[in-house]
């Protein structure tokens, strides 16, 4: 009788704890993204990535289709090499797709936006995105505006 009560309450406690963990996983964190399933990887080289972080979203027309899986510096090209993991389902991106680094909102995180080109060939695993646009660096922008003003 007493043992039964113990067993049930301890069982409920453990269940509750596990349920909380599940809640944290599914509702609070981005574990859903880990269920992207199969992905293929393409690389893109940028002069400057700004504040881009690994696992940042990769979007087309604002729809998320993958994430940044790796960021490294390539000492031969003097550029940042960004590896994008894109869902296998999204295998129709033209080879001349352009990748740009954007900022979500004024203070938001940075992400990669893809703009499809018109090529008939599509990007496949291991390919490189040739057209890239680096992140906007505020200091550079201000500098450019100032030179424009002074040349006027």
């Amino acid at each position: 009788m007493k043992l039964r009560y113990l067993e049930v309450s301890v069982g409920l406690f453990v269940l509750l704890g596990i349920a909380a963990l599940f809640y944290l996983a599914i509702q609070v964190s981005n574990i859903v993204e880990y269920r992207d399933g199969d992905t293929y990887e393409v690389t893109a080289y940028f002069d400057h990535i700004g504040g881009l972080k690994a696992r940042a979203p990769v979007t087309v027309s604002g729809v998320r289709i993958g994430r940044v899986s790796d960021i490294a510096y390539d000492p031969e090209r003097f550029q940042a090499r960004v590896t994008l993991a894109i869902r296998s389902g999204q295998d129709h991106l033209p080879a001349d797709t352009q990748a740009s680094i954007f900022t979500a909102g004024l203070l938001g995180e940075q992400y990669i936006g893809l703009e499809p080109g018109g090529d008939f060939e599509v990007l496949a695993d291991g390919d490189e995105i040739l057209f890239t646009q680096s992140a906007l660096v505020l200091e550079n922008m201000i500098g450019r505006v100032l030179t424009n003003f002074s040349s006027d």
Binding site: A25, Q27, E109
Partner: peptide, 19 residues
């Protein structure tokens, strides 16, 4: 509230580390 939460909270880096 929840989409921002999911955007910044990483399962492995944040939740698992907390555990």
């Amino acid at each position: 509230y929840f989409s921002q939460m999911q955007a910044v909270t990483d399962w492995r880096e944040d939740v698992v580390s907390g555990v």
